[in-house]
Design a protein around this nucleic acid. Structure first.
Lengths: 216, 216
DNA sequence: CCTCGATGTTGTCAGTGGTTACATTGATCG
DNA sequence: CGATCAATGTAACCACTGACAACATCGAGG
């Protein structure tokens, strides 16, 4: 069945075990404490064993970041499905919430995913693919909105996707770093602010049904 | 004049020298290599000397991040002034460009400013102040736009500021990490995309009558 | 059965953050 | 003028880390 600690000299599944352990370790102690030796220790293996599976610490971090992007991707996919079919604005809103929620729930992981440690994405093709996957998920929703006619004409799908992704990421970072507390903002007011910020974006990209003036 | 290496036992200006050296070191070698000992080495002082001025490495990083926010603030201020007076959309656009430009020109510093290393902002009041200052700069532009009547009614100034800041930050991060290359995007196309993303936002927040056209 | 590649272990080294005890300086004050 | 003393820099030290090399062990295929 599952290759679980066969009590042998060889661990048998070290890479996966190490990856998973690294992820939980990251969540509980932050990135600074995410060290090769500590991971090896917790997995119950010698401190140099991991070098058989990762060339260096950066590779381990990249691996963790990669699985992080995969998880983000499924979170976005789930959010999209949870929205009423055909309701583009609801779908986009759900994606935004899912994105921010993911950042809040997995803050250290999220920081790693977009941090300098794995900035050299060209060195980790898997990571680059996983990254693009999350972005593509966002773009797909925009594309469906366009097909559904909910998108204003004259703006490229990619641009809207980039704008939406940027808005989501920016809000997530601002919230994570507590910058939205500027001016003594209450906790509950934050969601209102996110909602309004989303409205800013959506009012810009959404179609203008009815004779409401202004079009271009 | 300037207290430059008075050839004495006491450095005389160690804190400032260390801070400046740390900043240039950060720019040229990245954050991982920004170590207390290396800074001390380059300043020509013993590795424990810096502990007389910084309780630990985190404090040094916070100091660097703090001056980074101050520089960002002046960059935003300069951009705002460079825009034609009264033209809210131009001002906002200039701020966006300045923000992204700053991130591109000072990538390691920018990462530090928003990274986990100085996430504990409550421990560094100076840093919190500098951070809020940059945000306030953005909010000020929005406020002036509102006073000038270029802002759509029914949306809080703070929400627009948060949205604009989030968009700027998000785009900067996406560009820094090369995520906008997804789908084989050309280098020159990037600016077009940023322009369009900005339009998405502005069409949402701008006043309707005579609203700025999209073009593109 | 036995070799050999893959995997894990022990041992080692340089480099780092941080602490503590000590040395040097220069200004203040009797 | 000289002793004192706080600020500042130094030296020695510890625990930890990443990385490497040499060796040990396993398991599969000749």
């Amino acid at each position: 069945m599952k290759p679980k600690t066969p009590k042998t000299y060889h661990h048998g599944d070290l890479k996966n075990a190490a990856s998973a352990m690294a992820e939980s370790l990251l969540a509980e102690t932050g990135i600074e404490a995410l060290t090769l030796r500590e991971v090896a220790r917790r997995v119950g293996v010698s401190h140099a064993a991991l070098y058989r599976h990762y060339p260096d610490r950066g590779a381990l971090l990249a691996d963790v970041a990669c699985s992080g992007f995969e998880r983000l991707q499924v979170a976005l996919a789930r959010a999209e499905k949870s929205a009423p079919a055909g309701d583009a604005v609801a779908a986009l809103r759900a994606l935004l919430d899912a994105y921010i929620g993911f950042a809040k729930r997995n803050t250290p992981l999220f920081r790693l995913m977009f941090g300098a440690e794995v900035a050299a994405r060209e060195r980790y093709p898997e990571l680059a693919k996983a990254t693009d996957g999350s972005f593509a998920r966002m773009a797909a929703v925009i594309e469906r909105a366009r097909e559904g006619g909910s998108l204003r004409a004259g703006i490229e799908t990619r641009a809207v996707a980039a704008g939406a992704f940027a808005m989501a990421h920016g809000l997530a970072v601002l919230i994570m770093n507590g910058l939205l507390r500027a001016g003594g903002m209450k906790e509950t007011a934050r969601e209102v602010l996110v909602e309004q910020a989303f409205q800013c974006l959506w009012l810009g990209v959404g179609a203008r049904p009815g004779g409401s003036a202004v079009g271009v």
